[in-house]
């Protein structure tokens, strides 16, 4: 058999077939492949991003932890200071109270003493007068000399 028009017919058919494949068979295949590629690329990118996010989050967490520690230290220090202050205040208050109580006691003691002194004085005066009366029974007129006696009483 020799070359004849059949070859032309086949060439036309082949060209049309190739065109059909290019138009309708190739694109869906390519789409599937590209979609897969995109999915993989996206996945890899996501993984990379996630790793970076994780790193960032870890750094952030560390920083926050550090901050929290610093804050806690500060609070503890403040509390300590405050405690010292309160103790100091309490001490001062207690001192003041003690001083007050002591002063009151002293005043009371003073009062008591004064009272007792007055009493004693009066009793001594009375005793003195009684003694003097006994000694000077007759020579002294209590009415006439009471002012002298009173002067004496005041002096004691």
């Amino acid at each position: 058999m020799s070359i004849n028009a059949t070859l032309l017919g086949q060439a036309i058919s082949f060209a049309l077939f190739v065109w059909f494949c290019m138009k309708f068979v190739w694109p869906p295949l390519m789409n599937a492949i590209e979609e897969r590629q995109k999915k993989i690329a996206d996945g890899l990118a996501d993984a990379g991003r996630a790793a970076k996010d994780l790193e960032l989050a870890q750094a952030k967490a560390t920083e926050q932890l550090k901050d929290a520690k610093a804050t806690a230290n500060e609070i503890i220090e403040q509390a300590n200071k405050r405690k010292a202050q309160i103790v100091e205040e309490a001490k001062a208050e207690a001192d003041a109270e003690r001083a007050k109580i002591v002063a009151q006691g002293k005043a009371e003691i003073e009062n008591e003493r004064n009272r007792v002194k007055d009493d004693l004085r009066k009793q001594v005066a009375a005793l003195a007068i009684i003694g003097a009366e006994k000694i000077l029974e007759r020579s002294i007129d209590p009415a006439a000399h009471s002012d002298i006696v009173n002067k004496l009483v005041a002096e004691i």
Binding site: G9, I12, S13, F20, C21
Partner: peptide, 22 residues
């Protein structure tokens, strides 16, 4: 068999058959 047809008419059958053959 399709190749036995006149050359200008072959594509009418050959192309659908090839497509089906995929």
């Amino acid at each position: 068999l399709i190749a036995l047809m006149p050359w200008w008419a072959q594509f009418a059958l050959s192309v659908p058959w090839a497509i089906f053959h995929i």
